[in-house]
Amino acid sequence: KVMEIKLIKGPKGLGFSIAGGVGNQHIPGDNSIYVTKIIEGGAAHKDGRLQIGDKILAVNSVGLEDVMHEDAVAALKNTYDVVYLKVAKP
């Protein structure tokens, strides 16, 4: 199931950690970017929809399929206060 989640960045950013990407696979044979941690009190935690194990398909208009881990981190960092995440639920 794919959904779009709109998050408003807090003082600590979006409030979640990711793993995965080309050269840094979270699941062997899979280059996808996965949510590995939700920080308590952060934007994602308060919103409640993003969960550990969700796959991040895109940030705003930037696709995160088959990208390097660093590029995924940069895509999440290089955002304004309002961030749209395209997410696939497991």
Rank of each mutant, 00 (worst) to 15 (best):
G20L: 02
N31H: 12
E65R: 10
A88N: 08
A19N: 11
G20Q: 03
P90N: 15
N78A: 12
K89S: 11
K6N: 11
N78D: 15
G23V: 05
D30M: 03
L57D: 03
I27L: 14
L64K: 02
A74Q: 07
F16K: 01
A44H: 01
L76V: 11
D71G: 08
Y80D: 07
K77E: 08
K6A: 07
S61I: 04
G15D: 03
I5N: 00
S17Q: 12
V67C: 13
E65L: 13
V67H: 06
K77M: 13
A72P: 02
E70N: 14
G20I: 01
D66H: 12
V87K: 02
G29Y: 07
E4G: 07
H26Y: 11
D30E: 13
N31C: 04
A19W: 04
Y80F: 13
A44K: 00
I5G: 00
V87T: 10
G10H: 08
E65N: 15
F16P: 00
E4V: 09
G20V: 02
S17F: 11
I8R: 10
G41C: 06
V87D: 01
D66W: 06
P90G: 09
I39L: 09
V73I: 14
K46L: 11
D47Q: 10
L85R: 00
H69V: 08
D30T: 06
V83L: 09
I38A: 00
D81K: 11
G42D: 04
I39N: 14
G41R: 07
V73R: 10
L64S: 02
A88T: 09
I52C: 15
V83E: 01
L7M: 06
K46E: 11
T36R: 06
D71N: 14
I33H: 06
S61R: 14
H69E: 15
L64M: 15
V87I: 08
T36Y: 12
K9C: 10
Y80T: 09
E40D: 10
V2S: 06
K89L: 05
V83R: 00
I5K: 00
V35D: 02
G21H: 02
I27Y: 14
V22K: 10
V73F: 08
K46M: 13
A88K: 13
V67G: 06
K89F: 04
A74W: 13
K77V: 08
Y34D: 01
S61G: 12
H45W: 15
A19L: 05
A43P: 15
E4R: 08
K9T: 07
G20P: 03
V62F: 15
V35E: 00
L50D: 00
V67N: 05
A43K: 04
L50S: 01
V22S: 07
T79W: 04
K12T: 06
F16I: 07
V62K: 13
L85A: 01
D47H: 04
R49Y: 05
A88I: 13
N24R: 14
D81W: 04
V87N: 01
G21I: 01
S61Y: 13
I52Y: 08
I33M: 05
H69I: 07
G48T: 06
S32W: 04
G21A: 02
N60D: 08
L76D: 01
K1G: 05
L85V: 10
L57Y: 06
V67Y: 14
E65T: 14
I38T: 03
G41D: 12
A58V: 10
L64N: 02
H69T: 10
Y34K: 03
G41P: 04
E4S: 11
R49T: 14
K12E: 09
P90D: 09
G20E: 02
E40M: 05
A44N: 01
D81E: 13
I38E: 00
H45T: 04
G21S: 03
V35F: 02
G41L: 05
H45P: 01
Y80P: 05
A74C: 14
